[in-house]
């Protein structure tokens, strides 16, 4: 189980990396944390001509606060996100999600940008980015683009990023003072990819729910906003009746993919259960009675 032959180029600057992506096009793969790419190489599921190692691009690492925006460099390791005070204070959703991301040795290497750019449908970071309304900054030799998370995730491992673009930065609006966030997922074992998962982010006053965004992952081909569920939720008091309405509406949002870990029916059921639970928790966190 040895990787196939490839060329390896260590990018020594962002410009160098972008130049390499221009030059090699679809023959190149970006090697960031490598925690998803390396297994596919070892298994020969992926046979790129060139690996462009961006790990030395230190400008792409780091977490900072820019006014009401938390700026996370794409090459920031999961472990640094997990341990960040800024994230804990301003992006509690991500802080809550991060312990679910694999295991310590993977978090020490894996990067938040890599996770978002790969767009595994069961991964936590794409869902969080969507729930928080993050902006993804991608860059090519011809310049930067800002892509709202709502437009970034196109499908199974497909995103709005072009082949010659590198995800360089994620900009998250800091969690508003009167907002709450809740992250929940179900995985067979700790650290596994989820079978079902929900992020909730929005405002709850007492039991009244406003501007709540519910993002579902692991059941579809990408993280998605439960538009109908949200429509049935916002402006309502959270109660059994609302819960029923929201979970019914959810059936129009989701079309779960069956896989080895569960049928579509089960995944729909689990997403409904999680919907109830995240909202119960959201109300509790907001100080209301669930």
């Amino acid at each position: 189980m040895k990787a196939p032959k490839f060329s390896y180029i260590r990018a020594d600057s962002l410009d160098h990396a972008l130049e390499l992506l221009d030059k090699h096009g679809e023959d190149a793969r970006i090697l960031a944390g490598g925690q998803s790419l390396m297994p596919t190489l070892n298994m020969r599921l992926s046979q790129p001509e060139v690996l462009v190692d961006i790990n030395r691009l230190n400008d792409l690492k780091g977490i900072s606060l820019d006014g009401d925006t938390v700026v996370i460099g794409a090459l920031t390791r999961h472990i640094d996100v997990m341990n960040s005070d800024i994230v804990a204070e301003h992006l509690p959703l991500i802080a809550e999600a991060m312990p679910h991301v694999a295991h310590v040795a993977i978090r020490n290497r894996g990067t938040i940008g890599g996770s978002i750019a790969l767009s595994d449908p069961a991964a936590e970071m794409p869902a969080c980015a969507l729930a928080l309304g993050a902006t993804l900054i991608v860059q090519s030799s011809s310049g930067k683009r800002e892509i709202p998370a709502e437009e970034f995730f196109h499908g199974l491992y497909e995103t709005a990023r072009a082949e010659n673009e590198l995800l360089v930065e994620i900009r998250y609006p800091s969690q508003k003072k009167d907002n709450v966030s809740v992250f929940m997922e179900l995985a067979r074992r700790h650290g596994d990819y989820a079978i079902a998962g929900v992020c909730a982010y929005g405002k709850v006053s007492g039991n009244m729910v406003e501007d709540m965004r519910l993002v579902y992952f692991a059941s579809e081909d990408r993280p998605i906003i439960g538009e109908n569920a949200v429509a049935a939720l916002n402006g309502k008091a959270w109660c059994d009746e609302t819960k029923d309405a929201v979970t019914s509406a959810l059936e129009n949002d989701l079309d779960p993919m069956a896989n080895l870990h569960g049928s579509a029916t089960m995944k729909m059921h689990l997403q409904k259960v999680l919907t109830g639970r995240v909202m119960d928790t959201a109300v509790t966190r907001a100080g209301g009675a669930s």
Binding site: L186, H261, G262, S263, T265, M266, H269, L270
Partner: peptide, 13 residues
Amino acid sequence: ITPELVLKALRKI
């Protein structure tokens, strides 16, 4: 004994 089997035994799905 997967969660799916448990849910089926519980008649939840």
